[in-house]
């Protein structure tokens, strides 16, 4: 395809600033994580004068990072698993059946997605506190199961919405043929729909896991020192007397790498899922 000069210039004008804008913070994160603590306290150095891996060793001691890591992993995995399983069933119903109440149900799913998390945080906090302090039910308040439930407030509606759109794109003939052959609804779901919707299911799972892993709002109030997750735990590197910047950068890098690498591998599924969900 022939290209005009003006378009080539436009490409450079767009790409150079965007690359700089994207890369500079990543560069700061990576290089500062490898500087000794004294070097990040003074004026910023573009080229690290002394390289060290000490921050990567210290991060595990300054703050119980491994513990927070474990908590984040449990909460994110559980929230992902629950929302994917629940979404598979209800998306199948929304995509393949017409029933009374279908409109109301999908209306609730769609509208709860657009409300801010703080709308659900305040009542859930009050409900959990009162169950704990008044009724003595300690299962929810600042516990991992409690946090998982609050995470479903955003992972579940998005999963149902996205998976329904994906299933709508799977030709009906596939499962109808199976139904004609005498397969039950559940049989058709697991033998036909689930395999065909695999990219959509993977996309939903990545999205849920990523949002849960990066969530701050609920984690800041729904956890205590034993159930703290990474998003809040990272702030413990800033004490009243000192901010350990190179350790903060090292810890940020450590908690990001698994997510970014996973995202790179599964990117195409996410694009496919998002496209089915939003572009159509």
């Amino acid at each position: 395809m022939r290209e005009q000069i003006s378009f080539r210039i436009f490409r450079w004008v767009v790409l150079v600033p965007l690359v700089v804008f994207t890369v500079v913070p990543l560069y700061v994160m990576i290089t500062s994580a490898m500087k000794p603590e004294v070097d990040v306290q003074g004026a910023f150095q573009w080229w690290p004068r002394n390289l060290t891996f000490q921050p990567f060793i210290d991060i595990w001691k300054t703050v119980p990072l491994a513990h927070y890591f474990g908590n984040s992993l449990i909460v994110s995995l559980a929230a992902t698993l629950f929302s994917v399983i629940i979404a598979i069933f209800s998306s199948y119903a929304l995509s393949r059946y017409r029933f009374r109440g279908r409109g109301a149900f999908s209306g609730v799913i769609l509208s709860t997605q657009m409300f801010p998390g703080v709308l659900f945080l305040l009542p859930l906090f009050i409900i959990f506190v009162n169950l704990d302090k008044t009724l003595g039910i300690t299962f929810f308040y600042q516990t991992l199961p409690g946090l998982i439930i609050t995470y479903l407030t955003f992972t579940l509606p998005f999963s149902i919405w996205m998976l329904t759109s994906y299933m709508n794109g799977i030709p009906r003939d596939l499962d109808e043929a199976a139904r004609v052959d005498g397969t039950t609804a559940i049989g058709a779901l697991f033998r036909i729909i689930v395999p065909a919707a695999r990219p959509g299911i993977i996309a939903v799972a990545i999205y849920s896991f990523m949002t849960a892993w990066g969530e701050i709002l609920f984690a800041s109030q729904m956890t205590n020192s034993t159930t703290r997750t990474l998003s809040v735990g990272l702030q413990a590197y800033a004490t009243e007397t000192n901010v350990y910047w190179s350790q903060i950068m090292a810890a940020s890098l450590v908690v990001s790498v698994p997510i970014v690498v996973g995202f790179m591998f599964l990117q195409k599924y996410l694009v496919a899922g998002l496209t089915a969900g939003a572009v159509k």
């Binding site: 913070p25 990543l26 700061v28 994160m29 990523m210 892993w213 990066g214 701050i216 990474l230 998003s231 990272l234 903060i248 950068m249 940020s252 890098l253 908690v255 990001s256 997510i259 970014v260 995202f263 790179m264």
Partner: peptide, 11 residues
Amino acid sequence: ALPAYAGIITW
């Protein structure tokens, strides 16, 4: 792809 807090804290 980066967790929100990791990016913001770098900023």
